[in-house]
């Protein structure tokens, strides 16, 4: 396998700075996932376990802010779906269009706006911010990209922005 990688097609270059995949979460925010997430990291913050504390401090139950991406991840399967829906679709589009079969995330920044509450339906849009020249790391040769995901709630209030730095790559030739 060669370490040479494909040039960036003009169509992909054109994605930079443009909103793509405006979507609404496939299900409303719900407490089961809130408890599962808290349980996964053994987080005993009373905001998520004690309704009285949540009422006093956050005017009712909220979700942990860092769960923001959970609410827009599509179901693994749904009736009538012929192709698996993927979260952060731009990331997978880049892998395919640039012929880079593997990818990891390296940097992650998240900014939090209004709290997310059970029953909320979040809306998102994905924006490719930048695409690097070819780079070689210990994993392989490929390109870094920066993707923003902007979240609003059903009232149009700003909920947050996630910025992911991904590295799509081909493993080194053996």
């Amino acid at each position: 396998m060669s370490d040479t990688i494909k040039e960036v097609p003009a169509e992909v270059q054109d994605w930079i700075g443009k909103e793509r995949y405006q979507e609404e979460g496939e299900f409303p925010v719900e407490r089961g996932y809130i408890w599962t997430a808290c349980s996964s990291v053994e987080m005993g913050n009373p905001l998520y376990w004690d309704d009285k504390a949540a009422e006093e401090i956050t005017d009712g139950v909220i979700a942990p802010p860092t769960m923001i991406s959970t609410w827009f991840r599509p179901h693994h399967w749904a009736p009538g779906r012929t192709k698996q829906a993927l979260p952060l679709q731009i990331h997978f589009d880049l892998k395919e269009e640039l012929d880079l079969p593997e990818a990891i995330m390296s940097d992650y920044t998240v900014t939090f706006g209004e709290p997310v509450r059970p029953g909320d339906r979040l809306r998102t849009a994905q924006v490719l911010r930048s695409l690097s020249d070819p780079k070689t790391t210990k994993l392989g040769t490929g390109r870094f990209w920066l993707i923003d995901v902007v979240y609003t709630n059903q009232k149009g209030e700003y909920v947050g922005t996630e910025s992911y730095t991904g590295f799509g790559y081909r493993r080194h030739a053996k």
Binding site: M43, P46, L47, P65, S106, Y108, T109, V110, F112
Partner: peptide, 17 residues
């Protein structure tokens, strides 16, 4: 938030893996 207590409200988080 184990450190801050529940009134601590996250504004921004940035990390490099």
């Amino acid at each position: 938030t184990d450190w801050s207590g529940p009134k601590g409200r996250l504004g921004k988080m940035k990390f490099r893996m």
